[in-house]
């Protein structure tokens, strides 16, 4: 469907204007200029920041350089979350460009995973795809794929090739008409005000009596506090890919069209801005 393919394109080509600045505590030979970049929402920080690293290494001594990591207003940014999720969770409703601080020292081991090379990102990405397919099709689709098909998914993401990625990913989005949707919806709900990283449980796209489950139904079950009460002002925003879908949106459609390339539907619940 033409309209739905447009949605897939809009999701894939979503970009966040970002300004990278070097942490003031880093030792440099001269002042480091900030570096501007349009970050793809669906990619991962460590996959698209080679240029940033190169830019800042020009002003630093080799002995002062350790593993690079990023921070936004004191919060270390987890590279294994998609960039769009990090932005929606920590920086939505702020002025653009998104200002990220770059560090080369004092790696926060307690908060972040190490990422020495892009193969780690690849492993994480493929593992997420497999987990999602286990929920959607009992792993039948991903197991039927060949090694080169897995590579095609990864290369599509790495090289930002929409058609290459979707030529293979559409297989992961198929389901029989009889079932009316996936077995379970792969989703993760992130909350800024919670200590746990995210909520992930089993949830079917259709109720036992045949009714289609919506985003509202999911939140009612997983995090009822995120839903507005009658007559009260909205306390939380439910954000997916930088937008607030209506709560009556069918979950199956959201999973097919607004999932990240890792095949998970990442949902951010953030407090409504007061101003």
């Amino acid at each position: 469907m033409a309209d739905d393919k447009d949605v897939l394109r809009d999701v894939w080509f979503g970009r966040i204007p970002t300004c990278f600045t070097l942490n003031q505590d880093e030792v440099t030979e001269r002042e480091a200029e900030p570096y501007y970049l349009l970050l793809p929402r669906v990619s991962y920080l460590t996959l698209v920041t080679d240029k940033v690293k190169k830019h800042f290494l020009k002003v630093m001594k080799a002995e002062d350089v350790e593993e690079m990591w990023f921070e936004y207003e004191g919060t270390p940014l987890k590279w294994h979350y998609p960039i769009g999720v990090l932005f929606d969770l920590h920086a939505s409703n702020t002025v653009l460009p998104w200002s990220i601080t770059v560090h080369f020292k004092n790696f926060p081991d307690r908060d972040l995973l190490h990422c020495p090379s892009s193969s780690i990102v690849e492993a994480h990405f493929m593992s997420s795809i497999k987990e999602a397919d286990a929920l959607k099709h009992k792993s039948q689709v991903v197991n039927d794929m060949q090694k080169k098909d897995h590579k095609q998914l990864w290369m599509g993401l790495q090289n930002d090739k929409f058609d290459q990625f979707w030529a293979m990913n559409r297989k992961l989005m198929e389901y029989s008409t009889e079932d009316g949707g996936f077995r379970y919806i792969p989703f993760r709900i992130y909350q800024t005000m919670s200590d746990r990283p995210f909520i992930q449980k089993l949830f079917r796209p259709v109720s036992p009596d045949g009714n289609v489950h919506t985003l509202g139904d999911l939140l009612k079950e997983m995090d009822p506090t995120a839903l507005p009460n009658d007559g009260e002002p909205k306390r939380y925003q439910v954000v997916i890919h930088g937008i607030e879908p209506l709560l009556e949106t069918p979950l199956q459609w959201l999973s097919e069209h607004l999932s990240h390339p890792d095949n998970f539907l990442h949902i951010c619940i953030i407090p409504t801005p007061t101003d």
Partner: peptide
Amino acid sequence: MGSWKSHVRAKLQQRDQMSQLEER
């Protein structure tokens, strides 16, 4: 087309216009 779908499309386009403006 369901209103929820039009809503998603409109919001996505609105979201991306900001980035396009930055780029320009």
